[in-house]
Design a protein around this nucleic acid. Sequence first.
RNA 1: GCGCCCGUAGCUCAGUUGGAUAGAGCACCGGCCUCCGGAGCCGGGAGCGGGGGUUCAAGUCCCUCCGGGCGUACCA
Length: 626
Amino acid sequence: MRDVRTELIRAVRAVLIASGVDDQVEAVVDRSARPEFGDFSTPAPLRAARVLRRRPIEIAEELRGRLEALQLPFVAGWTVSPPGYVNCRLDDGAWAPTVIDQALELDRGTPLVIPGEAPPRGRTLVEHTATNPNKAAHVGHLRNACIGDSVARILRRLGHEVEVQNYIDDTGVQVADVAVGLRHLGIAQGADEPYDRYCSRVYVEVGRRYEIDPDLVEERRRTLREIEAGDGETARFVKELASRVVDCHLATMRRFDIGYDLLTWESDIIALGFWSRAFELLRETGSIVHVTEGRHAGCWVMPSDGEEADDDDAKVLVKSDGVATYTAKDIAYQLWKFGLLGRDFRYRRWHPGDADSPATTTTGEAELPAEGFGRAARVINVIDARQAYPQQVVKRGLARTGHAEQAEQSIHLAYEVVALSPAAAEALGIPLEEGRKEYALSGRKGIEVRADDLLDKAWERVGEKAADAETATMLAAGAVRYYLEKFTLSQIIAFDFDDALRVTGDTGIYLMYSHARAAGIMRKVEAAPGPVVVPALEGAERALLHGLDGYRHALAEAGAALSPSTLCTYAFELASTLTDFYEHTEAIVREQDPARRAFRRRLVAATRATLADCLWCLGMPAPERV
RNA sequence: GCGCCCGUAGCUCAGUUGGAUAGAGCACCGGCCUCCGGAGCCGGGAGCGGGGGUUCAAGUCCCUCCGGGCGUACCA
């Protein structure tokens, strides 16, 4: 069977139809608001009253009769309460063992697909991280990576075929800036200074010098042109620089258990002529127009929907100097992602010797089959909300070139940025403004909290109590991830050190601690064989069973909404329910009745398994002890 | 100007796509270690920005106003 709630929804839907209401009325089933009503309740009769033109309470009585007649094996009885709810009380002896068994059978090798509902056909491509390879990753980049990684995990857990890509913009202004700085400013790398941090420092300094040194600005222009051209000394220098920073980023993300299937390089997109091919497609379909006068004179632009050429919303794709904009290359990339471009990369392993290494695109010798990459049915781009407009243009590019279906399956998973709380801003030496609640990060100005530094801080914090260094490493990474994932995507995170490094309350530490506690009980109480006999349930036990039963629903919901925070909320509730059980029922080690002891032990085992599964989806460790 | 997002307890945030009495963490105050791990638990006070509307039912949907953020580049 599926989870209890899904079964009840099916049953309610069936009796609604039998009563003459088709799908006009949704079969809503929720946990009962109060225990005295039962385990689950449906307000469907209230909604059906309008359609049937009858009193809700009468409809409720009728539905109750029909539901009773279904004789669902896990249901003890149905009641009606005014003004027109139908309530269900479960048969503990029937539903509890099923819920426990299902939790104990959780296996990450077996997707949690709902029986009868096959996972979607085709590949889902998730692009995330995409940090410019010119500086150390900061907490904003880390939010992107955590969201993307968890979405990928959740979808995989639900049986989707997922490919994760990290886009490397190695031809943009930002990397050019650092190249200029490295070549002309003579700043030395510190002895123990990691390369990405060194680049961060150079990046800030070169930004300052631009203000006072016009020659340096000219040098940037020249550098960009040479990068665009693709071969020559500068291009090689920049590729090397970007590669080294990418390695730093990969190492940083690996500390958070974040990995990738493929690195896609913008320089490869240019070198392999992706844009020129996309340009042909756009031109042939009339998706773009060449503007001869006005402020866009000499440019190729994509007009906005339903307006004439060169209106205010038109987006420039080719500048008057003939160079394609970033958005233009993004359209080409997006067409490739769906296998619509008619061109492909070549592929090899990024670091052949390293088992954790992703694959990478290359213009050199192909070592991996091309069929393994791209060709997506659905594309999810994890990109911050500020880029909604260019992402819309990318989507429009697909629609205009005749790929309405793929445009529909192009999802900009927008999330709000990470900013600094007043306290964090003050700690970084930023002057505070009256009434201002958040302060923007800026890699360019050096105003940032680096991902590695944050993790180091967390490690020191949890290390005070952790069993050993290895445990501290797990706890620190899990704590930081939870902090960055628990906010809804549309919420700006005003990053605060106290909140991020907290070890009590609604934190990743609490979740991992709960898991370790459950694991500890299992070490202390030996497993007992035989069938589960369900005793008279205490409140905390019933709550725990409901928590376990709700996992599939929560996971499916998080997957449908592409929302890790939904799963965070679920995880914290489950952990809290476990704590409640732990604190307010008799210790299992002291339980004398063997049947009850066995039942309670299995209940804890099922909870541990569910929590571990859930933590995996959130990219968090499930430690056996802390 | 136009578009998107945010506004829920002193602070930081949830709120199951419209359901019964709006939750949690932090902070503050007061309790709980002869008890499977106290990174815990129990108790205490206070809230849906304002105003209309739709509905049996609105934090949730519509309109409007007020605050705040972001976008609206031949930057990425």
